[in-house]
Design a protein around this nucleic acid. Structure first.
Lengths: 120, 120
DNA sequence: CGGCATCCTCCATGATACTG
DNA sequence: CAGTATCATGGAGGATGCCG
C-alpha cells in the first residue's frame, strides 16, 4: 500500500454522497431506520418526487441503500441503509462533527472581524 | 447538545471540499506542502487557470488555505494549508481510505456479476 | 507569473403532468 | 402510493484572450 497513491480517492467517496439531497436522505435512513417513499418525502418537504426517486435509485445502484418492494395494493416500497452502506456511517459522523465545529469557527471569526477591525 | 440536530451538518463539511478540483488541490497542498500557482497548474494539467484561481480563492475565503503574495518581479504567489485547514486532514484521510476500500468493493461486485451472469 | 473578463456549454435540479 | 415522462433553468465548469 502506497502512501501517496497517484490519484486521491477522496473524490470516490465524495461521489457517493454529494448532491443536494443524498446526505440528507442518508441521515434520515441512518437515524430513523427503514422508511417508505412518502415518509421520506414528508421528512424532506422541499425535495421533488423526481429527485427523491433519482437519488434513491443512485444510492441503491451504489449498494448504499436497499429497496424492498412489497407487492401489495396500494404499493409499498421501503428503503433502508444496506450493510455496506453502514460503512459510511463513521465518515458521515465525522463530517457532521466537523461541520458543527466549523459553524463555531465561523461564529468566532465573525466576532473577531468585528473586534479586530483596527488591523491594517 | 442534541443528538439529532435539526439539520445535518454533513453538508457544511461537504461544501468546503466539493467541486471537481478542490479535493485534488487540497491533497497536493497537504501532501506536497506549499506550492506556487503554476506549480499547482503543472500538478493538475487539466484544470483551467480560471478554475484554479476561483477554487484557490474560495478555499482562502474559507480559511482552509493561505495565500502569500511576494512583491517581486516576476510575481510569486504561494499557497499552503492553513492551521485551520489542517483540521480537515483526518476527514480527507478517512474519505481517501473509504474510497480505496470502495474501489475494492466494486471490483468484487463486478466479479460476482460476471460469475452470476447466466441471464440473457 | 499569476491572474481577470467574457462568453459558452452542459448537467444537476426543478416544475409539472400523467400512471399502474 | 410510488413512481415516469417532459420540459425548463441556473450555475459549475470550460475556452479564450488580455493585463500589470
Amino acid at each position: 500500500m502506497e502512501k501517496h497513491p497517484q490519484h486521491c480517492q477522496v473524490v470516490v467517496a465524495l461521489d457517493m454522497i454529494v448532491g443536494k439531497w443524498k446526505p440528507i436522505i442518508l441521515q434520515h435512513l441512518i437515524i430513523g431506520g427503514t422508511k417508505r417513499f412518502n415518509e421520506l418525502r414528508r421528512l424532506m418537504p422541499d425535495i421533488t418526487q423526481r429527485m427523491l426517486t433519482l437519488n434513491l435509485r443512485e444510492l441503491e445502484e451504489q449498494d448504499i441503500i436497499e429497496r424492498v418492494v412489497y407487492p401489495e395494493v396500494p404499493p409499498r416500497v421501503e428503503y433502508s441503509i444496506s450493510e455496506y452502506g453502514k460503512s459510511l456511517e463513521p465518515l458521515l459522523d465525522s463530517m457532521h462533527e466537523w461541520g458543527m465545529a466549523h459553524l463555531e469557527h465561523m461564529k468566532k471569526k465573525e466576532k473577531e472581524l468585528g473586534a479586530d477591525d483596527k488591523s491594517s
